[in-house]
Computed example of a mutant assay.
Amino acid sequence: MIQRIQTIYLLLAAALMATFLFCPIAQFDTPDGLYSFTSQGVSTVMAEPATDGSEATIAQTSVFTATWGVLALGAVITVLSLVAIFLYKNRPNQARVCMINAFFMVTFYIIIFLSGYTFQNDLAATHTSWSAYLVMPFVALVLDILAYRAINKDEQLVRSMDRIR
């Protein structure tokens, strides 16, 4: 049965993680300029002044350093959430995939913050502003844990029906 609540939880977790892969993670203010940290890499950000008196536009230019680890782990988390949805016929494996995914999400946070502090030190940033989008993987983690609990609840219900009364 694919119409269970854990399907919605896992689908929302996958959508949040897929969206997070395209959102900025942090911004570093350095003496050289402004750098943006995304899952694709660290790139310079330049403000182009407007000639007609309107607001300046902000454009990202060259990628300074690629962050393949963040991008790859975020993609793996997204795919595992989607794979877990289609393991509904084998609830123990579905629960196992959810726990593996939760481990990857915690690892994802560790990698993001270690990378951020490494880039901050390498760029000699005077100020680092972390994005509010960092909440998205945490919400995905909570949804993954809720899906795990719902899967176990379904498994206990099925096992209780198998007992002799």
Rank of each mutant, 00 (worst) to 15 (best):
M1I: 04
Q3Y: 03
Q3K: 09
Q6F: 12
Y9K: 00
L11W: 02
L12I: 12
A14M: 00
A15W: 02
L16I: 01
M17S: 03
F20L: 08
L21A: 14
F22I: 11
F22H: 06
C23A: 14
C23S: 11
I25W: 09
I25V: 15
Q27H: 05
F28S: 04
D29K: 14
T30P: 11
P31K: 11
G33M: 07
G33P: 13
G33N: 05
L34I: 14
Q40W: 11
Q40C: 01
G41S: 03
G41D: 03
V45S: 02
M46Q: 12
A47C: 02
E48T: 15
A50R: 15
T51Q: 10
D52E: 14
S54H: 10
A56S: 15
A56I: 11
Q60I: 12
S62A: 13
V63L: 13
F64L: 15
T65W: 14
T67E: 14
W68F: 11
G69A: 09
L71W: 15
A72G: 12
A72I: 15
G74D: 13
A75M: 12
V76P: 06
V79Q: 08
S81R: 05
S81K: 05
L82N: 03
A84H: 04
F86S: 11
F86N: 09
Y88C: 09
N90R: 13
R91P: 10
N93L: 15
A95D: 05
A95Q: 09
R96T: 10
R96A: 13
V97R: 00
M99T: 06
I100H: 00
I100Q: 00
N101A: 03
N101T: 13
A102V: 04
A102G: 08
F104Y: 04
F104C: 14
V106Q: 01
V106A: 12
V106S: 06
F108V: 00
F108H: 05
F113P: 08
F113S: 02
S115H: 06
S115E: 10
S115Y: 08
Y117A: 01
T118F: 09
T118K: 08
Q120V: 01
Q120S: 11
D122Q: 14
D122M: 12
D122G: 04
L123C: 07
A124I: 05
T126C: 01
H127K: 15
H127L: 15
T128A: 09
S129G: 07
A132F: 14
V135H: 03
M136G: 04
F138C: 04
F138A: 14
V139Y: 03
V139M: 07
A140T: 04
V142H: 01
D144R: 01
L146Y: 03
A147F: 04
Y148A: 04
I151G: 06
I151Y: 07
K153D: 03
K153C: 00
K153V: 01
L157M: 13
V158C: 00
V158D: 05
R163E: 14
